[in-house]
């Protein structure tokens, strides 16, 4: 990313590009485990959406559809809070990939 010269910056330390942090892929922080969504078990309670600190639960219309691994940090809260008897989100081992490869 090309960085602006001082003349190109907006006057007064302002960032006008609202919400552009979506370009930061926090999924690159995951190390060793990731959640796996098992749709058949899901009762669509949306707790995983609510409690995910990294905005990584994919919602399509009124349904949870899975995990956005671009942002998922693998914290595991969604899995712990998933209320189904047989969890609709389980944590699985993940091969640790290189940062560069994930950031693509």
């Amino acid at each position: 990313m090309k960085k602006e010269s001082w003349k190109e910056l907006t006057l007064g330390t302002i960032n006008l590009d609202a919400g552009n942090s979506v370009k930061n892929l926090t999924g690159t922080w995951r190390s060793g485990k990731k959640p796996q969504f098992i749709e058949e078990r899901c009762i669509q309670c949306f707790f995983c959406w609510l409690y995910c600190p990294h905005f990584a639960i994919e919602v399509d219309g009124d349904k949870v559809r899975g995990i956005n691994y671009d942002y998922c940090t693998g914290c595991g809260i969604c899995s712990v809070e998933c209320p189904t008897k047989e969890k609709a989100i389980v944590m699985v081992k993940e091969e640790v990939k290189l940062f560069e490869e994930r950031a693509k």
Binding site: N24, F46, H54, V59, D62, Y71, T73, G74, C75
Partner: peptide
């Protein structure tokens, strides 16, 4: 919750808060 989820996020992904942060 479904209805809340349908509302556009005012705080979005890609923030730098720790893994599992409660904020």
């Amino acid at each position: 919750l479904k209805d809340l989820a349908a509302i556009e996020d005012r705080l979005v992904a890609g923030h730098g808060m720790c893994i599992g942060c409660g904020i």
